[in-house]
Design a protein around this nucleic acid. Structure first.
Lengths: 215, 215
DNA sequence: TCACAATTCAAACAAACGTATGAATGAAGC
DNA sequence: GCTTCATTCATACGTTTGTTTGAATTGTGA
């Protein structure tokens, strides 16, 4: 079997694992379910990924690495641009995630569900990915937000960036809930509409007057 | 053994389960861990709760029922009060949850973590609790928010209520992250501060001008 | 065509899982 | 003091879990 087919097997496993993790959660998904869904042998997971824990890491990193790279590229662009606005900054932060989550239409929103859950996932592999992959990005964006929000104290900026992350995570992970709450009138797959609504809300929250009297 | 002691055993199991669910997740927690931590016999879970699935339901409902009752009581109060403001409404929605999560200081933030994860929990028991326990509350509050936000279309109201829920869920479930992001300068246990920051952000997002030109 | 390396496969492993059982233990009512 | 009922307990059941093994199969380079 050539190397292309090897990658095919690995990717089939990654795809099946991602979909099942999204639907049932990581711990509730067995390797037998994954390999059965991927039409691969049970032992192939340990052959290609060494362990379930490392498979989990690969499932996450396959999506997160390019997503965060896109974010940082766009941020770097903005930083060399005098005319950049808070709106551009929100785009740079939100759009790569929404694109990654909603562009994979075949899989519906499952990828988004899974990624949105990352921040609250108790699994150890997930926790360590937040630290190693998301921490630096969050800090660089916090600094950029702070520059656009000079009326806020440093801790206020962090609070509000934290809330902005919460909006994104909840929108992805709980997309089915807004569909239900709106009796089906809202379509959480509409990328442009999701972005519009999120940015409108977050921008207002971020730019709200400071709570501190020390102006 | 008298009935008081019986309830003690049940409560010890509920407490241990809640703490372990918060720390490790539902599926990663075994009944043996729970009963060991609760100093109860393994079989006592099935004796008192019939199954793990029903134990999960009881762990959730013990916190959610009183919390939502407090929310609805406060909403009813507001509805009979001519002078009620959007600020009062946000208090009625946020405060009962924050109180429940942060008043249990012995357990740190574990209860909050667990409750904040409810919306994104894949477990079936959790999903059904959202439908049966949270759906009605969300709808009643959405209607109340709509009354205070007459400049928004019905779907815009739902988007923004959805985001406001996301802020709450993320603040509870990912409380440790803001501590880390702020290098320990922010204390997510400070109830008044958490509420102040959440309300400031959410109110600005909710009251932002409509995106629709049909004014 | 042959030898070597990479991959797949069926089968088995010990460990851990949720649940069930029947006997021991405890307190309450007569 | 004896019966009755609720609770606790040690133990066992059948499954399922992640991982390992060694042989079979497939693809690659000489």
């Amino acid at each position: 079997m050539n190397e292309a087919n090897v990658r095919e097997t690995k990717d089939r496993i990654l795809d099946a694992a991602e979909a099942l993790f999204a639907k049932q959660g990581i711990e509730a998904t067995s390797l037998r379910q994954i390999t059965s869904e991927a039409k691969a042998n049970l032992a192939s997971v340990n052959y290609h990924f060494n362990s379930k824990e490392e498979l989990i890491r690969h499932v996450y990193l396959r999506r997160i690495r390019p997503m965060n790279q896109a974010r940082l590229d766009r941020l770097t662009d903005l930083e060399s641009n005098e005319a950049s606005s808070l709106d551009n900054l929100l785009d740079a932060f939100y759009e790569p995630t929404i694109e990654m989550a909603l562009d994979l239409k075949d899989k519906g929103l499952t990828v988004g569900q899974f990624m949105g859950r990352l921040y609250t996932e108790p699994n150890e592999a997930a926790q360590s990915i937040i630290t190693t992959e998301m921490g630096g990005v969050a800090r660089r964006f916090s600094a950029a937000f702070a520059r656009h929000l000079p009326h806020l104290s440093p801790t206020e900026v962090i609070w509000r960036v934290h809330f902005s992350i919460g909006i994104l995570a909840h929108t992805l992970a709980a997309a089915a809930k807004i569909q239900h709450l709106s009796d089906g009138r809202i379509n959480p797959h509409d990328k442009q509409e999701v972005l519009r609504q999120m940015k409108r809300f977050a921008r207002a929250g971020l730019t709200a007057p400071s709570l501190e009297s020390t102006t």
